[in-house]
């Protein structure tokens, strides 16, 4: 290696890095595997979907599954755009409110001193460990009592309560140096300013991670639509996709192909959001503002 001055790592490609490239590439292949699988399954013709032993890659790709899916979509009364609109609205609302609410709470829990602080955080951490499926029925009863059945709020509110968000964000805010916040107070900043202009930019990787996770839960789950919404026009895309695949699953052979096409369509927004956001994660990775 040539002389590097005060640096340890070389700035450009160096032969000594080859081993890292090899390891990372080999492991990287496994990371893209599921995505390739989703794409290739969606284009599989019927006989390949049920081939035994199952094949990973598609041999004779067709658009059959998509054609059948659109036939089913057209025969249902409500236009597809309606479901997609509902999904986008509820997911976006959910992501934004969840990030803001969680970081506000996490900021207070991390940086302020008050009596019930530790107790609150411990209850939150314990709530992490409780089986989400088991609270479904009491949660339904609450939604019913609050009169939220068949409202947009029922799609968002029950999902907002994600203890894992507060947990993750709080751990990151703990690492923000107190002196940074104090110096901001000295300069006359209030808590809103400190949180939104100082703390949140520093913990951006955590916030984006939480945002991606929140989007995932909201976009992929058909549960709120199937539990709390009776009106078909208010249901989400994820529900619609799971409904048409189960409705046809009386005819499982038919349903399998449609399901694979549907899961590809359902998956695309995930990857789009990911590509948009991951850049933010990686570029703003932890600069502390203080040396």
């Amino acid at each position: 290696m040539r002389y590097q001055g005060t640096k340890i790592n070389p700035t450009r490609y160096d032969r000594s890095q080859l081993k890292f490239f090899i390891i990372l590439s080999v492991l990287g292949v496994f990371m893209v595997l599921p995505i390739i699988y989703i794409i290739s399954t969606a284009f599989k013709p019927m006989e390949e979907l049920f081939a035994y032993p199952p094949r990973f890659f598609v041999r004779k790709p067709t658009f059959d599954n998509f054609r059948k899916l659109f036939e089913v979509v057209q025969s249902s009364g409500i236009p597809l755009s309606r479901y997609i609109f509902n999904s986008i609205m509820s997911s976006l609302t959910m992501v934004l409110t969840s990030v803001v609410i969680s970081s506000m709470a996490a900021y207070i829990l991390s940086k302020k001193k008050f009596r019930t602080k530790n107790l609150l955080f411990e209850i939150n951490t314990l709530a992490l460990m409780f089986v989400p499926a088991a609270v479904q029925i009491p949660r339904y009863l609450i939604i019913e009592k609050l009169g939220l059945i068949d409202t947009f709020a029922a799609l968002v509110l029950p999902l907002l309560a994600m203890p894992v968000n507060v947990f993750l964000i709080k751990q990151f805010i703990d690492q923000v140096p107190n002196s940074l916040i104090e110096s901001a107070y000295m300069d006359g900043a209030n808590d809103f300013f400190v949180l939104f202009k100082i703390v949140m930019p520093i913990i951006m990787p955590a916030l984006v991670t939480v945002a991606i996770l929140a989007f995932q839960t909201s976009w992929n789950t058909p549960d709120p639509s199937s539990y709390y919404i009776n009106d078909d026009a208010k249901k989400t895309f994820a529900f619609f996709m799971s409904a048409i695949t189960t409705r046809i699953s009386g005819n499982t052979v038919q349903g399998q192909g449609i399901a694979s096409a549907a899961s590809l369509i359902l998956f695309i927004p995930n990857i789009v959001i990911y590509i948009i956001m991951q850049n933010k994660v990686i570029n703003t990775m932890a600069y502390s503002g203080i040396k």
Binding site: T209, Q216, T217, Y274, Q278, I282
Partner: peptide, 15 residues
């Protein structure tokens, strides 16, 4: 880095 963060969107999905 983007590649190795990818499982986040896979593991929480139905695939």
């Amino acid at each position: 880095r983007a590649l190795f963060f990818l499982p986040v969107i896979i593991i929480s999905g139905p695939v």
